[in-house]
Nucleic acid binder design. Structure first.
Lengths: 201, 201
DNA sequence: ACTGCAACTTGCACTCACTGCAAGAATAAT
DNA sequence: ATTATTCTTGCAGTGAGTGCAAGTTGCAGT
């Protein structure tokens, strides 16, 4: 048995393929011509699908270019955080949680890299990317409420959420700065270190 | 001479009035019916202006609801930061800089408060608000480049920029949490304290 | 294989945000 | 009073995004 990522189901397989085709077409066309000179119609027909179907897969053109998807946290990472672990120190545990999100963020390194490159040329995409982080981090609120029972903290949810979002983006940027070595999660410690450096100036 | 905020110029006065009328109409209607059930046409005619003119004043519907404007940093705050001051410690000076932005952020407390309230009901507005912070903070890059000559720092621009953005939002949230006491800038120290609390868990 | 079922795709018609342009009105400058 | 400038407005257009209803396609049970 090779990997759990291969669905035997034909429906699921097509879904993945179509999704991937849309992202691929979107990234290629936007890379060539720029975000505002590519229409959803073009992306769709490039991927061999109808425009209407495009919007069954993505909420917006920007989302397709970024390859945005729902990402789910590993159940054990989640459970450990809620229980007040793994280390018991909030910042350290938050780092573990963010790492959990980041490793599931992109199914595909190249796709993520292309997205990062396009963001340099198209600031609008950065906004959408940050908005996506926000949505992902939204799940954090429930987790924090749970965790507080096991291990209270004087830091409010808003601040924790914003720092989590910052770490996501900082990791992605550090990853880009490194010339895309490894994956984004690998640069999380660097992001945390920079943040500490600034705070302790 | 009463204050520098009163332009003798009729053009400038009308500009302010129209801008304000648009914001007022946008906030009221969106508050009543929600962001997606109000059209730009309605906002415009409510303000007694054409739809086309609306877009001479704002880039988007969301911007009008938030009352987004260009904000400029006081020249002396700017000069001091670039020179490596006022305290010489980066984080402290960054705080002063963010305070400089925040005090010029809204010409009008009530307008800012209404915007904050609408953001609770309309998450899309939060995104736009963050995006606006990003744009404001964009100016920081030049300032940092200058400041590095006077006082180098091991912290990279990206991290500094993100922290500045975080402080803006954190201050606004703390302001809201306080029941809108004073202005947002008054809650900056609280925001910084929370951040430090988390980092030093 | 046949049938009924559910999921998915697609075309169609529609709303609305937003833009460029050119003409006209208001204001400022001379 | 006349000219120049700035701003508003209407118009026509592009394109994102949505709801709906009709087809297609894969799936399950028989």
């Amino acid at each position: 048995m090779p990997t759990s990522a291969l669905p035997p189901n034909a429906r699921e397989r097509q879904k993945r393929e179509r999704r991937l085709a849309l992202i691929e077409a979107a990234q290629r066309l936007v890379g060539e011509r720029g975000l505002d000179d590519v229409t959803v119609d073009e992306i769709s027909s490039e991927a061999g699908l109808s425009t209407r179907t495009f919007f069954n897969y993505f909420d917006s053109k920007d989302d397709a270019v970024l390859g945005i998807q729902e990402i789910e946290l590993d159940a054990d990472v989640r459970a450990q955080f809620v229980a007040g672990g793994p280390s018991g120190r909030l910042m350290t545990d938050l780092e573990a949680l963010v790492a959990g999100f980041l490793t599931n963020a992109a199914p595909n390194i190249e796709q993520g890299e292309r997205a990062m490159r396009l963001m340099v040329a198209e600031p609008r995409l950065v906004q959408r990317h940050i908005a996506w982080h926000q949505r992902v981090i939204g799940e954090l609120d429930e987790l924090l409420a749970e965790r507080r029972k096991a291990r209270p903290s004087p830091v409010d949810d808003d601040t924790i959420g914003m720092v989590a979002g910052l770490l996501m983006r900082a990791s992605a940027l550090a990853w880009a700065r490194s010339g895309y070595e490894g994956d984004a999660a690998a640069h999380l410690p660097e992001a945390v270190a920079q943040l500490r450096l600034l705070l302790d100036d």
